[in-house]
Design a protein around this nucleic acid. Structure first.
Length: 372
DNA sequence: CAACCGTGGCA
DNA sequence: TTGCCAAGGTT
């Protein structure tokens, strides 16, 4: 609720602005924000600024994740766990199941760890400063700055991908990311106004999302056009400069879905660290380690049975590789429980798509036609 | 510093 | 359709 901001109205420049001859204008940004800023659930003020728990939870969810995806998860989490102590007291597996589909599952594990630290070591009170916030797992430089500024009104440095893009264009930063992060943080510190410390980073991010977009930025109607070097050059879309990325290798694997007449499946809990760490999954082989030197086959099944490979494999793209996953199915007679390898953390349960990571949702969906 | 870690929307 | 990439952090 930008118009309801609790920060001071007047805006003054820092005295040490020396980054450009035509100064960045926070007044124009705040004017845009008061008119076009979004009303997001984690911005609801209580009473002056949003609760630190809401700001923290939303910022963790928003890491590399778009707002529209986060909203339903945020509403579900805050409904089930209204405060940090409630979240800390929940079983980790419940939190992971609620996180299923959001991705980057280390975030959920760190979320639970951090909640326990805040609830049971810090008396339920979030640190207000960047240093204290950085000591919580899952909070890096951006998130610490964001929470301290947004929830506590501190004059922190808050530079995410959106703000990087705006400032790289405003000042035509030619240094490629990620090396340019230091330079851009210095620019942020130089242009940061004294007023409305909670609103300023949020205004920049909303503005970046709505106007200063990645592709086809709205330079023709931009409220910050006067100070934008790249905009004046007509080269805004070519900023920020980024180093070339490596191509994604392809991997292949097999997922094994065993089900009985009651619709129960064999599901494993994946190891706590690494890909889909801690999440429920169908047993699978051949894809989730770095150098698969052997091709997975039905010989890798968790137990001997009459496995049948479905015609259509599941396709899934991870951050650093693309996966072509075959799906092997078998149906067991009721009451038969096959021998499982030692050490495998597996259970016969009725799978619920909502509790599974997206890859395993796709596997489940592929199997549905063959299901009891 | 660079690899690792998800997912879905969009051009 | 394929490629791009987002409110990053950890190791």
């Amino acid at each position: 609720m930008p118009n309801n901001h609790a920060d001071t109205q007047m805006v003054t420049h820092n005295s040490d602005i020396s980054v450009n001859d035509s100064a960045f204008d926070p007044v124009a940004l705040f004017a845009w924000y008061d008119r076009h800023g979004r009303d997001l659930p984690w911005r609801h003020r209580w009473p002056a600024l949003a609760p630190a728990y809401h700001v923290w939870l939303s910022e963790i969810m928003l890491q590399q994740t778009v707002v529209a995806t986060v909203i339903p998860y945020f509403l579900d989490f805050t409904r089930r766990w209204p405060d940090v102590t409630a979240l800390a007291s929940a079983p980790l597996d419940d939190v992971l199941a609620a996180w299923a589909g959001l991705g980057y599952y280390a975030r959920a594990r760190n979320l639970h760890k951090a909640a326990n630290k805040v609830a049971f070591e810090l008396g339920g009170i979030f640190p207000a400063d960047v240093g204290g916030l950085r000591d919580l797992p899952g909070i890096g430089p951006y998130t610490a700055g964001a929470i301290s500024a947004i929830a506590f009104g501190q004059h922190s440095t808050v530079v995410d991908g959106n703000i990087e893009r705006v400032l790289a264009r405003q000042y035509a930063v030619t240094t490629p990311l990620p090396a340019a992060k230091v330079e851009i943080s210095a620019i942020y510190a130089a242009i940061r106004p004294d007023q409305r410390p909670s609103d300023f980073p949020q205004a920049l991010m909303d503005f970046a999302n709505a106007v200063c977009t990645v592709k086809a930025p709205g330079c023709s109607s931009c409220p910050l056009a006067t100070s934008c070097i790249a905009g004046r050059q007509g080269t805004a879309a070519s900023f920020p400069v980024k180093t070339a990325k490596k191509p994604k290798p392809a991997r292949r694997g097999i997922a094994f879905v065993a089900f009985d007449a009651e619709g129960r499946c064999l599901l494993v809990k994946r190891p706590d660290k690494g890909l889909l760490g801690g999440m429920l999954a169908f047993p699978s082989v051949g894809w989730d380690h770095r150098a698969p030197d052997s091709v997975a086959s039905l010989d890798d099944a968790p137990f001997a049975a009459d496995w049948v490979i479905l015609d259509d494999p599941v396709q899934h793209v991870f951050t650093h590789f693309a996966l072509d996953m075959q799906v092997a199915v078998t149906r067991l007679d009721t009451g038969i429980s096959p021998d499982l390898p030692d050490g495998i953390d597996a259970n016969w349960v009725t799978p619920r798509a909502a509790d599974l990571p997206s890859l395993m949702r796709k596997v489940l969906k592929a199997v549905q036609p063959h299901y009891p």
